[in-house]
């Protein structure tokens, strides 16, 4: 989507989202697995979706420039199962997104169609990168995540509604609901799809004052 630099909006705002849930039942999923290195040679932000989880999703070896539609799929991989086609919420295990800082990982998740993640924990850099791209990484306690894995398996077409304002994840019929925490500033940026560079530049004078003083006191930093 295009960036509106007048309004400072560059991400799709996140308000309420209802979507199909896909489960990825393994801990410590690293960003090398989310988007393998050969696809990092791109100088664009888009087009990574077809190569999300490339080594798990396809049976052949993926390279940039391949026609992904014609590649053999791994029928064992969860995102290839017919029941999870069109999923927009990824249910995952602890320490999701560990390893490399590559922002190509959330770019690939977004490009594939995910709007939110649910897991017990995320690696720090990945967590930051998600927020920068309007992808909501929800943290729920292990027991609640276990429950969602069980329900996703038990009920084909299992969908969840994520209400960012109310900070709540619930089943569509409301029979199950879990509250989640989010930092107020991050919530604000997600809700409004804000470009935080624009927000930071509102404090340009404070930055300049700080910088001038710092470089005067420690001139070797100049």
């Amino acid at each position: 989507m295009c960036v509106d630099f007048v309004s400072g909006q560059r991400m799709q705002p996140f308000l309420v989202h209802t979507g199909l849930v896909a489960p990825l039942d393994r801990a410590n999923v690293d960003t090398d697995a989310i988007i393998p290195k050969q696809f990092l040679k791109s100088i664009k932000r888009s087009g990574f979706g077809p190569n999300l989880f490339d080594a798990w999703r396809y049976l052949d070896r993926g390279e940039p420039g391949m026609d992904n539609a014609g590649r053999p799929r791994n029928p064992q991989f969860v995102l290839n199962e017919p029941r999870y086609q069109g999923a927009s919420i990824l249910l995952a295990r602890r320490n999701f997104g560990c390893g490399s800082s590559r922002e190509h990982a959330p770019w690939a998740l977004c490009d594939f169609g995910f709007r939110a993640l649910i897991a017990p924990s995320y690696a720090d850099i990945f967590n930051n990168n998600c927020y920068k791209n309007g992808l909501l990484p929800i943290v729920l306690p292990e027991a609640q995540v276990d429950r969602l894995f069980a329900d996703t398996a038990a009920f084909p077409g299992f969908r969840l509604t994520i209400d960012l304002e109310g900070q709540r994840v619930s089943t569509v019929d409301g029979s199950l609901a879990f509250d989640f925490e989010i930092e107020p500033f991050r919530k604000h940026c997600l809700k409004h799809g804000l470009d935080d560079i624009g927000l930071t530049l509102q404090h340009a004078d404070a930055i300049r004052t700080f910088e001038t003083k710092r470089l005067a006191e420690q001139p070797w930093l100049a």
């Binding site: 932000r45 800082s101 922002e103 930051n128 990168n129 920068k132 560079i197 930071t200 530049l201 930055i207």
Partner: peptide
């Protein structure tokens, strides 16, 4: 380490 959006943020705002 930082992501690419943060690289841009640092470039633009220090």
């Amino acid at each position: 380490g930082i992501g690419t959006s943060e690289v841009e943020h640092v470039l633009a705002t220090q």
